[in-house]
């Protein structure tokens, strides 16, 4: 039963997240070509290669330091809109985990909440604007609810992935209100948001790595 995540797990988990992004590079770029300029997959891959390298250097450090390394790599690797947004999410989460060699479900819930708050402040979007927030928000709600019901850490993360998936899909019928795709107005109807998709994929990878580590 996975009840804590240890700092040794963190490096492996983040590497799996980077793998997930690499595997989905073309898919993410295609989503972005429909309502953006087609490079989201490539930007995410570049960013997560920088993350992978940075995290290798931070092996053995506490989880807060590792996540801060992820944040700084995301912020400085590529830029774009995803750098500041994903970077701020990880930065805020890292502050909760500062100095900890292991985190439990309570910590994780606080980290998820802090990440969402960071994304909201940085991006100034609302739920329903067809952004990554549409995936993050239901993920956070789901993990909070699961924790409140006494769920195990693994099961709670699984619930957050389901929340993110539903949120990601909910972007399809939305008209974009924020970011490059908002210029297209009604033409964004029927297209899934790339940022929300990346969010879902990262959470899915997080869950998969946790689950396989515990098997």
């Amino acid at each position: 039963m996975v009840e804590v995540i240890r700092s040794e797990d963190a490096v492996r988990i983040i590497a799996h997240m980077a793998d997930k992004i690499e595997e989905n590079r073309d898919y993410l770029s295609e989503l972005d070509a429909a309502i953006g300029d087609g490079d989201h997959g490539v930007s995410m891959v570049k960013s997560f290669r920088a993350v992978r390298e940075e995290v290798e250097r931070l092996r053995g450090k506490d989880i807060g330091t590792i996540l801060r390394g992820v944040a700084m790599a995301l912020i400085s690797a590529v830029g774009g809109a995803m750098g500041p947004l994903f970077g701020t999410a990880f930065l805020r989460a890292s502050q909760i985990a500062a100095g900890k060699q292991e985190i439990d479900l309570t910590d994780l819930v606080n980290m998820f909440e802090a990440a969402e708050a960071g994304v909201r402040e940085r991006g100034k979007a609302n739920v329903g604007d067809k952004t990554m927030l549409d995936a993050i928000h239901p993920a956070v709600v789901a993990i909070k609810e699961a924790a409140a019901k006494g769920s195990s850490l693994l099961a709670a993360v699984e619930r957050s992935v389901a929340g993110a998936e539903a949120g990601m899909k909910s972007t399809i019928p939305l008209v974009s209100k924020v970011g490059r795709s908002s210029r297209l107005g009604e033409r964004t109807l029927g297209h899934q948001d790339p940022g929300a998709t990346s969010c879902y994929l990262l959470l899915k990878a997080f869950y998969e790595a946790l689950e396989s580590g515990h098997r």
Binding site: D39, S43, S76, V78, P84
Partner: peptide, 12 residues
Amino acid sequence: VGEIFTSPPPNA
């Protein structure tokens, strides 16, 4: 200097 059609990062 950012990637193609991509904003550069803050440190740059």
